[in-house]
């Protein structure tokens, strides 16, 4: 498939935003059970605002993918059958809940305002945050299922696609949260950083699994099934037109084999070992520079990872476009 910049930015940016929100809520729930000290309302409010900003940036990027962005509202219509439609609904829901979460923190409201006395401090933010967590995981699921649900894109049609989108989003979000905590000068740097390293290592395992799986795919379609002729030797002599068409532009990545292989190594290095080392340095050496580097490297690596994710998928329609003529 041809990797579209808009979709690369959409999926990576909302991944960071979702991961950041999960980081914030994790810290808050640890605090709720007394494992972590309390944070200022401003910390949560600013963090939630940043998470929303990432989602908004992703949404803006996605509009560049559409031929008719002014009709985008129509995309919510077919949520019963289309994962894309579900994503279009899940994205603003997650965004809205993150925003409310930050706002409730900022205002310092709790359920007592609604006349419900629970006696738990911060019960309202915990409740809104929990809903936000559900929406966030729902959004991960919808985004990844857009790709995983197309069964003949065999590189994508696997639960690993959903797992990778989720774990990579969480890893990048926690890496960003570590940097954010360092900028806010809180004691959460170690907490976020530790989880960021764990999530990144977990993502390494799941991403490598999908690379391994994809290296051994047996394609179900062949030129034989494409034109329905039983013969072991079939070659295309003409695709029916001399220059390109939508079918030759949209479904081939068009990069050289060498570059394709480079990108794989670029992302394998930038997404996993580099941030882990920099996170370790940043935590132990209390260095904001290292943490900034960790996030920058991981995010850049994720752009390459997403490019590779799209480029690696082989669409069966390509069987019809092998030779110009």
């Amino acid at each position: 498939m041809h990797p579209a910049l808009s979709v690369i930015f959409l999926t990576t940016l909302i991944g960071v935003g979702q991961g950041l929100f999960l980081a914030l809520y994790t810290a808050e729930s640890y605090h709720a059970v007394g494992l972590l000290p309390a944070q200022s309302p401003q910390f949560y409010a600013a963090g939630a605002l940043l998470a929303v900003a990432f989602l908004v940036a992703g949404l803006v990027a996605s509009f560049f993918h559409l031929g008719h962005p002014e009709r985008a509202w129509r995309a919510a219509a077919k949520w019963r059958t289309s994962w894309l439609s579900r994503e279009v609904i899940a994205l603003p829901v997650a965004m809205g809940l993150m925003f409310v979460y930050g706002a409730v923190h900022y205002m310092g409201w709790d359920l007592a305002r609604l006349g419900i006395e629970t006696g738990i401090p911060g019960d309202l933010t915990l409740l809104v945050g929990a809903l936000g967590v559900v929406a966030t995981f729902g959004l991960f699921l919808c985004t990844a299922m857009i790709y995983a649900s197309i069964k003949f894109l065999q590189e994508w049609a696997s639960p690993l696609t959903v797992i990778n989108y989720t774990v990579l989003g969480i890893a990048s979000g926690f890496t960003f949260a570590t940097l954010f905590a360092a900028l806010f000068d809180t004691e959460l740097v170690n907490f976020f950083g530790g989880w960021a390293i764990i999530a990144t290592l977990a993502a390494l395992v799941t991403r490598l699994s999908s690379l391994l799986r994809n290296a051994h795919i047996k394609y179900k379609s062949s030129t034989q099934t494409a034109i329905g002729v039983r013969h072991s030797i079939i070659s295309q002599r003409s695709q029916g037109f001399m220059s390109g068409s939508f079918n030759t532009r949209e479904f081939f990545h068009g990069a050289s084999r060498l570059w394709f292989r480079y990108v794989k190594w670029i992302f394998l290095i930038l997404v996993f070992p580099v941030p882990v080392v920099l996170l370790g340095l940043g935590i132990t050496g209390d260095s904001q520079g290292a943490l900034t580097g960790a996030f920058a490297a991981q995010y850049t690596g994720l752009l390459a990872e997403r490019w590779f994710f799209f480029a690696q998928a082989n669409h069966p329609q390509n069987l019809y476009y092998q030779t110009v003529g």
């Binding site: 559409l66 031929g67 962005p69 995309a75 289309s82 669409h315 069966p316 329609q317 390509n318 019809y320």
Partner: peptide, 23 residues
């Protein structure tokens, strides 16, 4: 109604949907 998201063309295994690059 079409928003030009191209998702349907990905979901057709036969490569017979073509986006009109101007409309």
């Amino acid at each position: 109604k079409c928003i030009g998201c191209k998702y349907c063309s990905w979901a057709c295994p036969y490569g017979v949907r073509e986006l009109d690059e101007h409309q």
